[in-house]
Amino acid sequence: MRQSSAVFRMIAPLIAVGVLLVGCGPSPVPNSAPSQTAAPAPAQTAASDKPLRVAPAPSALNLPAGSLYKNPTNNRNELVLADVRHTAVLIGDSQAMPAGSWPQQGIAALGYKLHVVGMGGTGYVATNGKTGNYIDALQRGDWVLPYGEPPLIVVEGGGNDATQRATDAQITGNAERLLAALKTRYPGSRLAMIGTLARGISNGGGRRTEVDALLGRIAAKHGIPFVSAGDWLTRYDAIGDLQDGVHLRATGHAKLGVALARELTALGLTARPDNPQPAK
């Protein structure tokens, strides 16, 4: 018995050392733990480095004019025009809608064909119960814009916003949204704005003339050419050409069409020739 105790006293330190060595080893990895060995993550690509999806030229689609095309770059239906390179887009209200309206006459006089979208009773904020305001109607696809890149896009309006008592903040917010959407969708197109047709602040123009001035400030902020029409009914003696206090007869459209063409020309918005001749 004494011999056994002596032997135990001799080997006990060795056992303790073994236990300590085992305790300092690496902990076992649970079976559920994922492997820590993996291929390196792919390098991140900056957004600006991502390849842009470029839609084919309208002529490459082999679709007849008037066809709707689902543009893969923005996932929207767009209208194939016969000659988008020479077509200006006009977005507007009842001042712009009738064939031969003063906005249509003024733009056509600069050498453009026209694609007109919009509806009476609408505006930057105003709606008519059938469709939304300018930006909402375009975003929903109520009005179809052309495929390709038109040389000029003109936005006219504001009268219905004045009638429906839209605030400056509401008009500004929606105008900003509209301009941003158009710039994104047609980055190569020139933009222009036509203000609100009215009598002028000293001749009873009231809120309509105020909206015209507000739109002018918004256009200036974005560096967009702007034609103020806030006193045109008085300036161009067109009050007598009104048929209902707001809308013009053919004679009034003719007067203001000439005035608009002159203003747009002064802003350098005439149609550009395909092959400009070198200066002599």
Rank of each mutant, 00 (worst) to 15 (best):
G25N: 04
A33K: 13
P51A: 09
G206T: 05
K130R: 14
R9N: 14
G123W: 09
A57W: 11
G159M: 07
L68H: 12
K70V: 06
R2V: 08
A108S: 14
E156P: 03
I107H: 09
H253D: 15
E176M: 10
A238R: 02
P30W: 04
R217L: 02
A180V: 00
D212V: 04
L20F: 07
A12R: 07
E149S: 15
I91S: 06
R140S: 12
A109E: 03
G216F: 05
D161G: 08
A96S: 15
A60R: 08
P13S: 13
T167V: 04
P72Q: 01
L267S: 06
K221Q: 13
G157F: 14
I224K: 09
P51G: 08
L61G: 09
W102C: 09
K113H: 12
T131Y: 08
A271K: 11
Y134T: 00
A126N: 08
Q105D: 12
S27A: 15
S67F: 13
V84Y: 04
A259M: 11
A96L: 02
A175D: 00
A175T: 04
L260I: 02
E78P: 00
A65W: 11
G216K: 06
A16W: 07
P40G: 14
L114V: 02
V89L: 14
P150F: 09
A43W: 00
G188T: 07
Q139N: 13
G120Q: 00
S59V: 09
P28V: 01
P187E: 03
A39Q: 15
D237I: 08
S67D: 14
P26A: 03
L14T: 02
P273W: 04
G66T: 05
A96I: 02
G121K: 12
G148R: 01
W143E: 07
T131S: 08
Q139S: 14
N62E: 15
A259I: 06
V154L: 08
I194E: 01
I15H: 00
Q104H: 11
D212L: 02
N275Q: 10
G25V: 01
A271M: 10
L197V: 05
